[in-house]
Design a binder for these strands. Structure first.
Lengths: 100, 100
DNA sequence: TTATATTAGTCAAAAAATGACAAGTCTAAA
DNA sequence: TTTAGACTTGTCATTTTTTGACTAATATAA
């Protein structure tokens, strides 16, 4: 499930309107609508605020948000799957290095 | 191996200088140097040109280049590994959908 | 209808990426 | 030890992309 879909689901569960959350994020309703539909990407700090406002796990939202960004970056590339695998490997190695 | 490292390796194998490739890409030498060291990212069209100039497989370079971009996007996130997995799954599903 | 919620489209402002330029380091040959 | 060439560093301007506000449109419900 995409970040926007998840936000919408959580918002509706809490019976909140777009304008409520938009106001909390200090953006207008059209902008919030676009974030919910994936037409625009939220900023990282907005994700953090939304996790609080929606009383949900911030890591769950950050994961969905970041996954959207990765997908967006690679979706038109034929080498996407390979590149993701390479990046994942690099990431794991870099984590091991940091432990040393 | 990162994109920059691979470019440098291929360039040195062919006994080319940075200024040769920089000129072909119509950028200056400092800029090329930065791309090789990963301080700046190459543009997609520059990757294509480099594959021709260095007579190497374009998909190999595109993979390394894209992997760098993904790594850059996620490297500071604690949710990086999970997000990558989610993105990979989404990607695979989107490919199946396109086949229908 | 009328009011409210959401979406669509356009444009300006802000932020990030890209590149040029000047000056620096490093190495090897003279 | 100079000199020349290859490469790197730092800074600034330009271009491109992202973000957001605004207006207007659509949809839905009372």
């Amino acid at each position: 499930m995409s970040f926007g879909q998840r936000i919408k689901e959580l918002r509706e569960n809490k019976k909140l309107l777009q304008r409520h959350l938009a106001a909390s994020l200090e953006i207008d309703t059209p902008m919030f609508s676009k974030i919910e539909r994936g037409e625009r990407k939220a900023k990282r700090e907005q994700v953090l605020k939304l996790a609080k406002l929606l009383e949900t796990d911030v890591d769950e939202l950050l994961t969905a948000w970041l996954a959207d960004k990765i997908y967006d970056l690679v979706k038109d590339e034929t080498t996407a799957v390979n590149a993701i695998k390479v990046a994942e490997t690099t990431l794991k190695y870099s984590k091991i290095e940091k432990q040393l």
